[in-house]
Amino acid sequence: MRLPSWLSQHLAALRAVLVFTVLLGLVYPLALVAVGRLPGLAGRADGSLVEAGGKTVGSVLIGQSFTDADGNPVPRYFQSRPSVAGDGYDPTATAASNLGPEGVVDTVAADPDESRQSLLTLVCARSRAVGELDGVDGRRPYCTPDGVGAVLAVFRADGLTGRITRVVSVNQVAPATPFVGSWQGVPVELAQPGHDYVAEGGIVTPVRGDAPDKPAVPADAVTASGSGLDPHISPAYAEIQVARVARERGADPAAIRKLVEEHTTGRALGFMGEPAVNVLELNLALDARFPTR
């Protein structure tokens, strides 16, 4: 007996579903698992985990912080770049912030929990902290000496024109000292929590200052990667940390520098990307060759 056309079409569709379910839901995944078990690939399939002293201490693919219980950098280790993934390097919260280069004014709320730093202030604060930790010049253009964005809200008598009537350092609050005492003859005030000086008519005016054109603290030391999980730092960031690590471990800086070179990878295929240093692998090598007492 010949089946109705509608029924035969449904049976053909069902057979196709079953075939592709077996192929793509069972055979293909199991084939990939089998390939991942091949010698030389098993470690990568498991996440490129790193062991030390019989314990898993991390992955070469995911960065981590080298800080104490209070979040302060441990001086004997090379430090990673900042991370905004969760509380830092959280693979379940990988993301970038939504802060952009035009975000230069902090949100200073009466409730500290509602305050929010701009990207400029985050960069300034990080650069200042790295400079103090590693004994280098932490100054950057458009940053105040106390590590916030050097930005003024300039009020004029006729909106965008006319004489200046008021100037506020929008990212500095008491007990700070204004990074400039006056602007075109008008005394500079500190910001007051809860005020939106831009909405009140202030003209946003970043002030470059006298910082060098090329900061001593490199960009990857003050900005997070897009994923927040980057395990690498630039050779330039590693270089400014050499003296500190050598001092903390009682080692020759030249020996520490050589170890950095050994853990520096070049550009992919010779032209893609930039040279990079894997921080976890470098710090494990430090513990092996220059253990602290």
Rank of each mutant, 00 (worst) to 15 (best):
G63V: 07
G36V: 05
A216F: 14
A199E: 15
A69Y: 05
P206R: 00
T94R: 15
G273H: 02
E239V: 04
L120A: 10
E261Y: 02
G88P: 09
V277C: 05
V17D: 06
L259P: 03
S182I: 10
D90T: 04
I256M: 07
A211Y: 05
A191F: 05
T94S: 15
A199Y: 03
K55F: 03
F271C: 06
E239Y: 08
A12F: 11
G43P: 01
D196W: 03
G63Q: 06
G273T: 00
W183G: 13
M1Q: 14
Q172D: 08
V60Y: 13
E248D: 09
A268K: 06
R247L: 15
L229C: 03
P206N: 00
V105S: 02
H263S: 03
P175L: 11
A52H: 13
E281D: 12
R267Y: 01
T144K: 02
A150F: 01
L269T: 06
D87G: 13
R208L: 12
D252G: 03
S80I: 09
F155W: 12
H232P: 06
L259S: 01
N171K: 04
D134P: 10
G25K: 00
V188H: 11
A211E: 11
G54P: 03
W183K: 10
V207T: 07
D90W: 02
V17L: 12
S8G: 06
G40A: 09
G131Y: 08
E274A: 13
L119D: 05
A129M: 04
L11I: 14
G36K: 07
A236W: 08
D70M: 09
T223M: 14
P112Y: 07
E274M: 10
A243R: 14
A243C: 11
R293T: 15
N283V: 11
A153G: 15
S80L: 07
F290C: 05
A285K: 04
A95M: 11
P91V: 12
P231T: 11
G149K: 01
R166P: 01
V207W: 03
P39M: 10
V22H: 05
G266R: 02
L26Q: 01
A42Y: 06
S115F: 04
D90Y: 09
G185I: 15
P141E: 12
T21M: 02
N98S: 11
S227R: 06
G53C: 00
F179R: 02
E248P: 00
A13K: 04
L120E: 07
E189G: 03
L41I: 09
F66E: 08
G202S: 13
V17E: 02
R257I: 14
A276M: 04
G147E: 06
G100T: 15
R15T: 00
A93M: 13
P175N: 00
L32Y: 12
G149C: 07
A125K: 06
R244M: 14
L229T: 13
Q241L: 14
D196E: 04
G202A: 07
A12H: 10
S118F: 03
D213K: 08
A129P: 13
G58D: 11
A246M: 07
D146V: 13
D158I: 00
